[in-house]
């Protein structure tokens, strides 16, 4: 499987996660967001960028509970809640935000 952006095909797994996270760029992210029917706002990008920073530092995608806590710490308590993240990503920050950020599916995603 794959996703085509600007004439280039990016390989994805059967669930739509980018195979090679090194290939990620904002255009690919925007294209995956379209497939996920997400209208990307600055708040969406904030979470996506946070996830990429987290991954760069720890080499894993965080579990939702861990993401919520870490977002609250970094971006303010009003954003560190399940309801805020699910409002942005209705099918779950793990399923959608990680996918848009080009990360693998989180370990411990239950």
């Amino acid at each position: 499987m794959g996703i085509e952006v600007n004439g280039k095909t990016y390989e994805t797994d059967e669930e739509g996660y980018l195979t090679n996270l090194g290939e990620w760029n904002e255009d690919v992210a925007a294209a995956i967001a379209v497939e996920e029917k997400i209208d990307m706002t600055q708040n969406h990008w904030e979470v996506v960028n946070f996830l990429r920073e987290y991954y760069n530092e720890y080499q894993i995608a965080p579990a939702v509970r861990v993401l919520t806590k870490a977002i609250g710490k970094k971006l303010g308590p009003e954003k560190g809640s399940n309801s805020y993240l699910y409002e942005l990503f209705p099918y779950g920050p793990a399923k959608q935000a990680c996918k848009i950020a080009g990360l693998p599916k989180p370990t411990g995603c239950v």
């Binding site: 530092e57 080499q59 965080p62």
Partner: peptide, 14 residues
């Protein structure tokens, strides 16, 4: 290979 040693530093957050 993937260096997974940074992940031990994520344990605190878990």
């Amino acid at each position: 290979m993937k260096n997974f040693s940074p992940t031990y530093r994520a344990l605190e957050g878990y």
